[in-house]
Design a protein around this nucleic acid. Sequence first.
DNA 1: GTCCTATCTTGACTGGATCAAGAATACCGG
DNA 2: CCGGTATTCTTGATCCAGTCAAGATAGGAC
Lengths: 142, 142
Amino acid sequence: MTVREQARRSAALRVTRPRLAVLAAVADHPHADTDTILTATRQSLGEVSHQAVYDVLKALTNAGLLRRFEPSGSVARYELRVGDNHHHAVCRSCGAIADVDCAVGQTPCLAADNDQGFVLDEAEVIYWGRCPTCLITPPDPQ
Amino acid sequence: MTVREQARRSAALRVTRPRLAVLAAVADHPHADTDTILTATRQSLGEVSHQAVYDVLKALTNAGLLRRFEPSGSVARYELRVGDNHHHAVCRSCGAIADVDCAVGQTPCLAADNDQGFVLDEAEVIYWGRCPTCLITPPDPQ
DNA sequence: GTCCTATCTTGACTGGATCAAGAATACCGG
DNA sequence: CCGGTATTCTTGATCCAGTCAAGATAGGAC
């Protein structure tokens, strides 16, 4: 019993080659989607199953090493979890994503006026707008 | 030419029974997903194709009558677009959604410190936490 | 080295959403 | 009130990110 429990706990996050490779891929490709991460991982490792990458991303996200976010209309994207509380700006025309610091301090808007009894632990902010490139060369509106 | 252009403009948002029914369905079911809206629409109209509901939701959203949001891990949800800039609190365990006013004023966090040259027009905020029900009766952690 | 089980491989499947072609209908002018 | 026209709706197929399941592999404790 005790032995097994210990083993289970220590095995909470095994160090495997796919995990290291996925972690490196996310570091190299900020805000990458799953497919980009899969491609990058295969470049450094050779064959890796797509299921493995999904599993690894989920495990690392649960462990707090990665942060997952999903702008409306986009697939899931990942970045290295850093301590700050930065947010994301997304371009409405080309989908470009940039990191943005929040002006409100450490926990922006977390003190909501009317929280309906919810106990909140995170405020996820997505800013929508236009990136510099799309401002200069507006995409054809049809 | 002029005739056709006028027709096109005035036809920008035709008043059809499916559209009225969908609008009523969203009004009756705040934060409803597409399937809920489809079911509610069929209850008031009889048969409606699922494609029609998708088209209507997109048209009404583009017209600014509806607001679409999509919490990570959830399907798309819709609500009547109201003038305020309220946001949403989502329960991590049961997925319940509540409206929340932002404490920071009319355009929360919109004045980002470092906007990377983006011109921002909306700050979409999702608060993550636990709803009152899940606080009282925590769901089985397996 | 051995054992246990978390992790990875393989392959099928799910389900929200989109695409496409043709029929129906709202709205305009007359 | 009627016809013309482009939009909207119906029907039916398709896409694809993500999940499920079963068995093989390999990390790491002892």
